[in-house]
Computed example of a mutant assay.
Amino acid sequence: MMKKFLLLSLVCFLITDVLHAQTNAQVSADSIAYQLQRKKINSMLDTRKLRFGQYEQSLNDHTGIFGLQTKNDIRRSNDILMDIVKTDDKIYKELKILLEYRAFQQRQIQSHTKEAESINLGYMSVINKLRHQNELLKAEAQKATEQNQSTRRIFIWVIVFMFASILFLISRKSKVKV
């Protein structure tokens, strides 16, 4: 019984280790994707910052007569501004993806936590069940030992009674002969 318990415990721990290793590998891959997404957004923010600096510079450029802005200056500023707006849109999309990664990671952690809790509860119920079975087996063994002892006592009394009967019969026969 103890061997079965130890074997079951060993198998449970091995399964837990395998699940833990798979979880770590998946979390590591998700973390790498999350870090890559962050780097992508940071590079986009750097690009936006550079473009905004170009926009400010274009607003200060006055190539027209009497230091006024020309249509080309205004168009160039508007083009840079449109690029900034497009970059902002891309940044928002990438941020949304980043937040989805984060939410996905949190859901995974919660599901893994629930799995681990259910596995632990399963182990605990198996252990409790095995303990209960062990107690029942001990009680049955104790009962069997008591029955064995009472059966021995009965056999001993039967043998003593038979021996006494034989002695009585022998002593009676010897009195009859004399």
Rank of each mutant, 00 (worst) to 15 (best):
Q69G: 00
I41Y: 03
V160K: 06
K90T: 01
N148D: 01
A139P: 00
V18W: 04
R172P: 06
R48I: 08
D46A: 13
N72G: 01
K177D: 10
V158G: 10
E56K: 12
R102Q: 11
Q105Y: 11
I170F: 13
R153A: 12
S77C: 05
F13W: 12
Q142P: 12
N72P: 02
E135G: 00
F5D: 09
M162Q: 08
M162T: 11
Q149L: 03
K4W: 06
T151G: 01
K90R: 07
S174M: 12
S58D: 13
N24K: 07
G64F: 02
R102I: 04
E94A: 09
D88M: 09
N72S: 04
K3I: 12
R131M: 03
A144M: 00
S125F: 03
K3Q: 14
L169R: 09
L8K: 15
L10F: 14
M162S: 09
D46Y: 05
R152A: 02
V11D: 05
I109D: 02
E135A: 02
L7S: 13
A139D: 02
T16S: 04
S58I: 14
S125P: 00
E146Q: 10
E135F: 04
F66V: 02
L59P: 04
K114H: 14
R131T: 04
S31E: 07
L14K: 05
Q106I: 08
K71M: 06
E100Y: 08
I41T: 01
T113V: 02
Q22H: 07
S150D: 09
H62W: 06
E115M: 14
L7T: 15
H62I: 08
E115V: 11
N72C: 02
I159G: 13
M1Y: 10
D79E: 00
C12G: 12
L7G: 10
L10D: 15
F104D: 07
D83S: 01
S31W: 04
I41H: 02
I41K: 05
I154G: 09
N134D: 07
Q54Y: 09
N148G: 00
Q142T: 15
N128C: 07
Y92C: 13
K71N: 08
F13C: 14
K129F: 14
L50M: 09
V27Y: 01
D79L: 00
Q57Y: 14
I170W: 10
F52A: 08
K86R: 03
I97P: 03
